[in-house]
Computed example of a mutant assay.
Amino acid sequence: MEIALVGIGKIAVDQHIPAISDNPDWELAATVSRHGTVKGVPAFTDFDTMLEERPEIRVVSLCLPPVPRFDYAQKAILAGRHVMLEKPPGATLSECHTLEALARKHRVSLYATWHSRQADKVAAAKDWLSDRRLRKLAIRWREDVRQWHPGQDWVFEAGGLGVFDPGINALSILTEILPVPVHLTGAELHFPENRDTPIAAQCAFHHPDGAEVTMDLDWLEPGTPTWTIEAETDTGHMLLENGGGTLTIDGQTHDARPGLSGEYPRLYAQMAELVASGGIDMDLAPLCHVADAFLLGRRIAAPRFDW
Rank of each mutant, 00 (worst) to 15 (best):
Tyr111His: 01
Ala29Val: 15
Thr49Cys: 04
Ser94Ala: 15
Arg69Tyr: 09
Met84Pro: 04
Arg69Glu: 10
Pro65Tyr: 11
Gly160Thr: 05
Asp71Ala: 03
Trp128Lys: 06
Glu53Gln: 05
Lys75Gln: 07
Phe164Thr: 09
Leu134Pro: 04
Ala124Glu: 02
Ser94Thr: 15
Leu51Gly: 03
His97Phe: 14
Val32Leu: 12
Ala76Gln: 05
Glu86Trp: 11
Ala101Asn: 10
Arg135Ser: 05
Val38Thr: 06
Trp154Ser: 01
Arg142Leu: 06
His106Phe: 03
Val163Gln: 01
Ala119Cys: 01
Leu64Trp: 08
Glu143Ile: 11
His115Leu: 07
Ile57Cys: 11
Phe44Trp: 12
Val59Lys: 07
Asp71Val: 02
Ala112Met: 06
Asp48Ser: 10
Phe44Val: 14
Pro66Val: 09
Ser61Ile: 12
Gly159Ala: 05
Leu129Tyr: 09
Ala158Phe: 08
Pro65Cys: 11
Arg117Cys: 01
Trp148Gln: 01
Arg132Met: 01
Val163Leu: 07
Ala73Met: 01
Lys39Phe: 15
Ala125Phe: 01
Thr45Met: 04
Thr45Gln: 07
Lys75Asp: 02
Gly162Phe: 04
Leu134Glu: 05
Leu28Arg: 14
Gly36Phe: 03
His82Cys: 04
Ala158Arg: 04
Leu78Phe: 00
Leu99Thr: 14
Glu56Pro: 10
Ala124Ile: 00
Asp71Tyr: 00
Leu102Tyr: 09
Glu53Pro: 08
Gly80Arg: 04
Phe47Tyr: 12
Lys126Ser: 00
Arg146Phe: 08
Thr92His: 13
Leu161Thr: 09
Asp127Gly: 02
Lys87Trp: 11
Leu110Ser: 06
Lys75Ala: 07
Tyr111Leu: 08
